[in-house]
Structures are given as C-alpha cells and as structure tokens.
Write a protein that binds this DNA or RNA. Structure first.
Lengths: 129, 129
DNA sequence: GACAGATTACGACAGGAGTCGTAGAATCCC
DNA sequence: GGGATTCTACGACTCCTGTCGTAATCTGTC
C-alpha cells in the first residue's frame, strides 16, 4: 500500500529534491543550497525539513551530531505520484496536454528525446490507423 | 508576456475546466457538474467561481439574469503555464520525469501517441525550418 | 403586492504551507 | 570553566484555498 503520499508545497519539493541529490545531508547544507535559489531564513529550511520528516518523507540518520537527513522514498517513487496527482487534479486525467507541452519544450535532453522515440516506437507497434 | 497567472487550487482548476467545456455557463450548471465528482455545497462553487473571477480567469457575460461565466483565457493558454509551473516547481525544470511518466502511462490516446511520434520525429531531425 | 424559490453576496473558519524570531541545548575553543 | 558558535525546537503569523451558513436580492406567479 503505497501510502497516499501527503501533498507537498513548492519549497517542500525543492528541499526534498536537494536531499535526494545530497543525502544524507545536514540542515546547513540544504540551507546553503536553497539560499542559492531563494532568499529564506535557515529556520524556514529546518522547519520544512521537519515537516517533511513528519510526513514520513525524510528520516534522520541515527546518532549523528549535526542531524543528517536522508530520504525515505526514492525520487523514482515520489515523482511519478506527484505527476500522477497533477495529471488527475489539473489536467483532468488526460496526459494529452503533457504531450503537447513536451512538443513545445526546448529543454528536452538527448536522453529525453531518445526516451520519447522509444515510447513512440514501443507504443507505435500495435499501431494501426 | 502573459501576466503571471495566479496560482490555482485543485477545485479551482476543476471548475475552470468545467467552464471551458460548457461556457458560457451558470453557477447552477457548474455546481451540478462538480457535484457529480465531489460533494460540495453550491455556495462553495459560487465562491470559487468568484475567486476565479477575481483572478481574472473568468468573466461574466453582461446583462444575463442568472449570471453566466465564460473563461477569459483559453485552456491552451492556461494549461501550458500550469504545466510549466509544475515542471519548474516540482521537477526542478527538467521534463525528463514527464517523459518517463508518459512511458508508463496507459492512458495515452491514439492522438497522443501520434503526437509523441511526431515529436520524436521532428526532434530526431536536427535541421529544419 | 406578496410570497416562494432561486440567485448572489458576505463574512467566517479551518487546515496547509511558507516564513521567522527567539530561546534553550549542544559544541567548540581558548 | 566560560564565552562564542552552532544547532534545534517552539511557537506565532500570514496567505491561500476549501467549505459553508446566512442574509440580501431578484424573479416569477397568484
């Protein structure tokens, strides 16, 4: 039972991403990184870290003096859920707009394009028209 | 540049979608539709309609007795912005996870697949235009 | 004109998320 | 040991969104 996964705010997701990329990490590390992108007090970061912990998304590494956090769930588990929620809540369940979005996206990496082609290929198989 | 586009809550987006599909429409119509999906009081719907109006996303058709609302912005304008915001806020700017998501999506319509293939095709070939 | 019913506006409250200030606790360094 | 630093926990606010209740308005019908 993949627990519902509490809803996440923007800062929460940002911090969660940072933890994924740097875990296990201290509040200080995260604060420094966050502050490169937005101007917030360290207590805000800590608070967010705590909320994330309360939501079961982060955990503390035991017995470390400056507390270090690590993610409980892999991003490959969380992101899809978040996307799914977005697709259902905002797009009404249809991924169509996403496809259109990607079509106009200029930020597709080589890898993304490859993946897209693979999808098209794969799904195109049973195709008929 | 299009104005920032106020942030939207889940119910707000849902109602906005309903308006897009039925505009111009009355609060009653929307309420009936919304209530097919979630149990809310009509005043809640009206309030949401008003907030959407305050955000500049809906407008009233002039001089109609039961007020009728219509969308100020086309969904083809709003959805991409919302997706973009999501990609930046949640995915950190990379559409990669979206691609992965689509790869596992079972809900792709024929049209979506076609579009996907077109994208893959188009991008697959560097020079054009 | 008066009443019933529908429509709309107002105001209120709750919970979540972002944001901090402050202060107590733990550490470090003479 | 004691002061300087750093780390943490609390508690407090504000804003946004969801959710209504209630009251004021408007409409159509006897």
């Amino acid at each position: 039972m993949a627990k519902p996964l509490a809803s996440l705010g923007e800062v929460e997701v940002q911090i969660l991403r940072l933890v994924w990329q740097n875990q296990p990490c201290t509040e200080r590390q995260i604060s420094d990184l966050v502050q490169q992108e937005r101007d917030v007090a360290r207590t805000t970061v800590l608070k967010t870290l705590q909320r994330l912990e309360a939501k079961g998304l982060l955990a503390r590494v035991p017995d470390e003096t400056p507390i270090r956090f690590r993610a409980v769930l892999d991003e490959n588990r969380v992101l899809p859920s978040l996307i799914d929620r977005f697709v259902h809540g905002v797009l009404g369940g249809s991924p169509g707009p996403l496809v259109a979005y990607l079509a106009n996206s200029e930020k597709l990496s080589e890898k993304d394009i490859k993946a897209l082609q693979a999808i098209a290929q794969k799904i195109g198989q049973p195709a008929q028209e």
